[in-house]
Design a protein around this nucleic acid. Structure first.
Lengths: 181, 181
DNA sequence: GAAGGCATGTAATGAGTTACATGATTAT
DNA sequence: ATAATCATGTAACTCATTACATGCCTTC
């Protein structure tokens, strides 16, 4: 364990959490993240190569290198890592949720564009949120029988969120079309 | 205008958008952002010092330095900057929305914590989203009479989102309490 | 056996965060 | 006139994004 304890961030806990299920390579992490929390919180694949290396340096994870071949690196969580995750889960959660939505930014500044732009934006966003909601429904059906109960719950929150935003844009399109028929 | 055109990002457009209303110092930007889009997409104040400087380098914004005193720097948008904003508003929007919510991450990994942690998490998150929703209601009342129409709309989306997530956690708390009475 | 995609990684750059510093203004 | 807070900025560090590079496996 290194003495200078770095402050862990969200990426750290995602990696620790994933590794709590089983040892994994960076590629495994990438796959798992891509199908689950990557839906709402995206990580570039290089982050999933960098972060485990940092956790090794921190003494929370250990690395075993495949003999010969491609010398792939597999990461396993150490007791200190499990402890870090537990203590994070037990700590208060006061950070503000961030919703990074380019569509919202464009709506905010829509006065500097045309009416056409805005209508197009609303249609794009409506479609995108609807598709994502549908994706969640499928995903839920696929995993509901065997996945971790809380993972399924997470998906349900995602679904509610997408439905809500989808509805917003639908109402908004209607409002716009009512004005300029 | 510089020849190597950097790819602008969300921060860039926020600054360009704000400056489209009127010239401003970094501090002005910080205030405006803090009261509006900062609610869902936060920017550290240093970003609002760095980004205008980059936009100057890009030839999209110009800087005038106060004579004497604190030599404060005021930024104004140039025609090329307005054009960049317009063209962004006219372009398609296909980026996925990111919802960076620590609560969601903790829910996802809740199996590695205790039931108590989870209940506490649900209560924290419920409270936080409720308060934010209430804040939006007030904010809307304050600005609805004079603010830009689309800015108000943005706030409405924020409000719907908060209500939706608030409800999720409320239902979830009920579910948990139903199990371990 | 060549092509295409999956798996694995690194380097370079750019951006974001945190901490530090200090000048101005207001309130007591 | 001192404290507190607002306003203004920079430096150091960490993190994220993008591009590059290439090995391995499947399929045709």
């Amino acid at each position: 364990m290194s003495d200078r304890t770095r402050k862990l961030n969200a990426t750290s806990y995602v990696v620790l959490g994933m590794l709590s299920y089983a040892p994994a390579t960076s590629y495994d992490l990438k796959q798992f993240v891509g199908n689950t929390i990557g839906n709402f919180w995206a990580f570039a694949h290089s982050q999933l190569y960098d972060e485990p290396a940092r956790l090794v340096r921190d003494g929370l994870v250990e690395e075993t290198v495949e003999e010969g071949g491609r010398r792939r690196r597999t990461y396993s969580i150490l007791p200190a890592g499990r402890e870090a995750l537990r203590s994070w889960l037990a700590s208060g959660t006061h950070e503000q949720t961030e919703v990074r939505d380019t569509g919202l930014l464009k709506l905010f500044f829509a006065s500097f564009g045309t009416d056409q732009d805005l209508l197009q934006l609303a249609r794009d966003r409506h479609k995108s949120h609807r598709e994502r909601a549908e994706g969640y429904v499928e995903q839920r059906a696929e995993i509901v029988d065997y996945a971790d109960r809380w993972q399924v719950k997470t998906l349900e929150l995602g679904l509610r969120y997408e439905r809500c935003v989808e509805q917003f844009w639908a109402d908004f399109i209607e409002e716009l079309e009512g004005e300029a028929p």
